[in-house]
Design a protein around this nucleic acid. Structure first.
Lengths: 233, 233
DNA sequence: TGAATAGTGTCTATGAGACACTATTTG
DNA sequence: CAAATAGTGTCTCATAGACACTATTCA
């Protein structure tokens, strides 16, 4: 049976991490090759589906993560798909975008000629000019992330496996761009049975040591029954 | 520039409607042609993307809706994408699935040899055997629909443009499979400014006439701040 | 006037938010 | 003991849910 030319299909990754108390996104530089679209521009990391190598979309995501030197065990979820005749100058193309959350600490060389780099600014204007419609995809990913932070445990996947509640709360606050009440935050966490303390393990500082916790279930996020919204009027 | 064989890409529709107080889903019969996979089986309506006809995924959705004789002005939103080497015997294939909500009344001939038909049973076992992984797609669509009914105005898109609050509440109750308190339901609707009354327009019956309402904004669903959940413990 | 459904008012329980308070460490 | 952060207790307010009540039509 013949397989005639359908659209191009690729997978693109929107990888977020909190670094130095700011939300960061991982971008990749496109090759300096005049034969590909947008040579030398920054773009989302991703790859065309290779029907020989990739058994599924998820396998393709893991391969793309390895390609950029990222652990392929990071949390990811499908974001959405984009497809039309205009977005790629080579013709009709479809992209399945994935939201990836990375524990801060996945380091990349931060040099001028690096092909993969963290970018801190999350407003469209502050980012470098991006290839294709990748700005739209990032906007969607930011909306998805900020919405789900309100009612899920997603931020826990942006921390190492062990953390204090203050550290977790800080990630929530960075993503939500507002302060959360400490007491309400803890009440909610415990009600959802999100975390469990690690016996006798404390973070030592120049003050009262903090209990260290881990997620009860690292395989999937938890949904809280309500939101953190103040003044829901 | 050459376009070598990527995966097949198609769009599939999960069309829901409430008919006779039950959730229904629209299925299409595959052609009786031994050269295509699953000849004669029921499946989700959909179509391969035609890069000549379709300017975008959304345009392809509207064409698919017209193909099955459905108004292409129905509410739809992208559900998710499925893609792997196994799901289509012809090889690697990708499908972008859409959730479509239809005002009940879009009639189809309900005859034995119809190619498109409403099916009322929503449990997997009660449906006819379906082609491809379409059972998985339907399960995802049901989960998405039931989740969003808890906190959005999606059910309003399954009614004609004018309706009474009792009618709207009934759609919620059918989708949620539980009763909702009338007073709480109305308080929530009005707080969200979801609907507006049509002056002096009433539904007449053998009792006190009911005010008829319309959506304030038919272009997109509204998100409620909380859910209808009773006994959130 | 009774049946039937539309529509409203009141009470309670719950949980988020605000905020003050106590606890435990180091220097 | 002071500084600093960890962790808890208490009060208030908003709102969902329960449920009873009133309103308006037709037969």
């Amino acid at each position: 049976m013949t397989r005639s030319g359908g659209p191009l299909v690729s997978v693109e990754l929107v990888v977020f991490s909190v670094i130095d108390e700011r939300l960061n996104i991982l971008l990749a530089r496109r090759p300096e090759d005049a034969k590909v679209p947008y040579p030398g521009l920054w773009s989302l990391p991703g790859t065309a589906i290779d029907i020989k190598k990739d058994a599924s979309l998820e396998a393709c995501v893991r391969r793309a993560l390895r390609t950029i030197g990222h652990p392929d065990t990071a949390y990811f979820e499908q974001l959405a798909s984009w497809g039309d005749a205009q977005r790629d100058p080579r013709g009709w193309s479809t992209t399945v975008a994935y939201l990836v959350l990375s524990a801060s600490g996945s380091a990349y060389p931060d040099t001028e000629d690096a092909t993969v780099r963290w970018f801190s600014p999350q407003s469209r204007k502050a980012r470098p000019r991006l290839a294709f419609d990748h700005d739209d995809i990032i906007e969607s990913a930011l909306i998805r992330l900020r919405n789900k932070v309100e009612y899920t445990s997603l931020p826990a996947f942006m921390l190492p496996t062990e953390f204090t509640l203050a550290e977790l709360q800080q990630v929530y606050e960075i993503l939500l761009e507002r302060k959360i009440d400490k007491s309400a935050f803890r009440t909610r966490l415990f009600a959802a049975e999100l975390v469990e303390p690690i016996a006798d393990k404390k973070r030592i500082g120049s003050n009262r040591p903090a209990q260290i916790y881990r997620l009860k279930n690292r395989s999937q996020p938890i949904f809280f029954p309500r939101t953190f919204n103040p003044n829901r009027s």
